[in-house]
Amino acid sequence: MYAARATFERALADKSLSAWSHYYIALTDYRIANYLLAQGKKNKDRASKHLKEAAEHLEEATREDITREDAKTVAAEVCALLSSVYGRQISQSGIKGIFLGPKSGNLLKKAEQLAPDNPRVVLSAAISAFNTPKMWGGSKERAMEGFQRAVYLFSQEKPTDPIHPVWGHSETYAWLGIAYMDRDEEDSARTAFEKALEIDPDNGWVKYDLLPKVKKEN
């Protein structure tokens, strides 16, 4: 992921694609941060730096003057990912929720307006609904519906441009499994995790963390 990140950093020099470069740098930072956080508190500082970088790159991407045909797609993808990054920062430091919570919600709304059928936008909205307290608009039921809809949308997704993102299909099944676990529907959860591994056999989160938990509880 570091190699990918460095490649996208160099790609920033190509101004015509710099919004996408910022997006992909942020995506690698976001994934590195999540990986580090799953390793425990010793990596928290490093993870925070990656989340901060991710947010800065995405904020930069929103400021880019995009004249490409896919401007709307870029904006939707950037908003959805930035919303998720803010959510992750809030989970690390509650006080940030005061500032970032409303921003995260607004970004998600904007992404949904721009691309209501983008599976990553739907996935981000569902994760947000799952993790957000009821008082602030969260809903487990809406999250479940979102995960299921995202599964369908990913199965239909046919990228028209190789630069457009295609990630998220395996993650959606992982989240669907988590939502089932939350409902104590262990069998459905296991099926979802197995489906996630079918799509991406190297999904370490599912392989080493989530699936063993279902098996253990059984």
Partner: peptide, 8 residues
């Protein structure tokens, strides 16, 4: 499970 902690 701790979904938000384990998201990779």
């Amino acid at each position: 499970s701790r979904p938000a902690d384990c998201q990779i």
